[in-house]
Structures are given as structure tokens and as C-alpha cells.
Amino acid sequence: MSQAHVMFRAGGQSFAVASSNVQAIHDELSLQSVGDTKKWFLGLAVADGVLIPVTDLAGYLKLGQASGRTFSGRTLGISPEVGVGALRVDEVIGVDDTATKVSDAVLPQALQANSNLFSYSLEASTGEHWVLDVPRLLQSKRFIDIGVSA
């Protein structure tokens, strides 16, 4: 049996994260903007009684213009065991545990700048999904430094 992954889309690209890295999927979170922060940092929100920062994944990956990013998508709540945070995506396709891992897939050009976050992809019925390394993302300096001056 393969590992279950949450399949989603953001910035025109298909991604997947391990279901263990996701605590819950939120819909219509009430965001509170924070000044002097990067544009991809959407603000703070309360989910299940916990204050969490919400990041626009497509903006962070610099896919915003290509995907036509909006604020109407869903938010993937990161499991507390991995870190505190939430990723705003365009569409959550579902949970798939039947996708096949593809190791030698070529990373799309749009993702080349963040190639350290993607190591393999999954081939599912909905297409090719690049698996995002959530712990590395949360620990990266650029992701943590949300201030404008930085």
C-alpha cells in the first residue's frame, strides 16, 4: 500500500503533500492582514482555536501571475507535528493513495527556482503532481522571513 497524499492545484501547477503533513483543510478562513509583510504572506487566521500564519503558496513559489491567484481557494492546515502554518491553494482535488511515484520526472520550468522543495512526483488519474517537501518549506529562511525589509 502506498502513502496517501493530498492532491491540490496552485498557480497552475499540480502538487501533492503527504497526508501526514496536513492536519485539516479549511474553507473560508477569516484572515487578518499584517502590515509590512511580503505579499505572499496573507496574514493570520484562527483555525480550530489556534492562531496560524497563512501563506499563499503560489505567490511564494512565484506562480501567482501564471496561476491567476485569488483568495477564494482553500487552506491546507499544516500538522503541528511538522510546524505551525497554513498554505492557501487554489483547489483541493482530494486524497489519493494509489498514485505512482515517479523519480525521474523533469521539474517544470516554473518550479526550477524552488527545486529544493520538490524531489519526486506522483502519477495519478488527475495527472502528474509534484510532491512538496513541507518540513523543508517551513524551515527555509525565506519562508520564515515574512518582513518587507527582509
Partner: peptide
């Protein structure tokens, strides 16, 4: 259903 699936997977 998605969250339930995720919980079930966890």
C-alpha cells in the same frame, strides 16, 4: 469528507 479522509489516513 476530505478532512475525514486525512484524519483517517493519519
Amino acid at each position: 469528507a476530505l478532512n475525514t479522509t486525512i484524519r483517517a489516513a493519519a
